[in-house]
């Protein structure tokens, strides 16, 4: 995935049955972001695979003052990449989940 300078990871073990994920996002490469942001803070949030969209979460993060409007695309993309990865992992190994 193209590097947005942001990192998104599971904040908790994925139990695969729950549609709500606990994710954590932080700035790994501040140079890649346009707007002002707090770079030594990780933001933990829940993401529901069925009802939430990366763009919506990114918009809420901008509105909460975590990121600048110009970086909301990068935030949404980093969330989307991680969520897509998690969905693929879940499809591949339903047995061990």
């Amino acid at each position: 995935a193209e590097d947005t300078g942001l990192r998104v990871e599971l904040a908790e073990e994925d139990d695969c049955s729950n549609s709500s994920l606990a994710l954590r996002l932080w700035v790994e490469d501040p140079k890649k972001l346009k707007g002002k942001h707090k770079d030594n803070e990780a933001i933990e949030f829940s993401f529901n695979l069925e009802t939430d969209t990366p763009e919506e979460v990114a918009y809420e993060m901008v509105r909460s003052g975590f990121f600048h409007e110009s970086d909301s695309k990068a935030v949404a993309k980093s969330i989307r990449d991680r969520v897509t990865l998690i969905k693929k992992t879940r499809e591949k190994k339903p047995a061990s989940c």
Partner: peptide, 27 residues
Amino acid sequence: SSLTQVVHSAGRRFIVSPVPESRLRES
């Protein structure tokens, strides 16, 4: 930890905590 801050936005809860130094230099 005391540095953890909870921010509510449009019904979603964001928990802000410091990133461990080790994670920052990992990339």
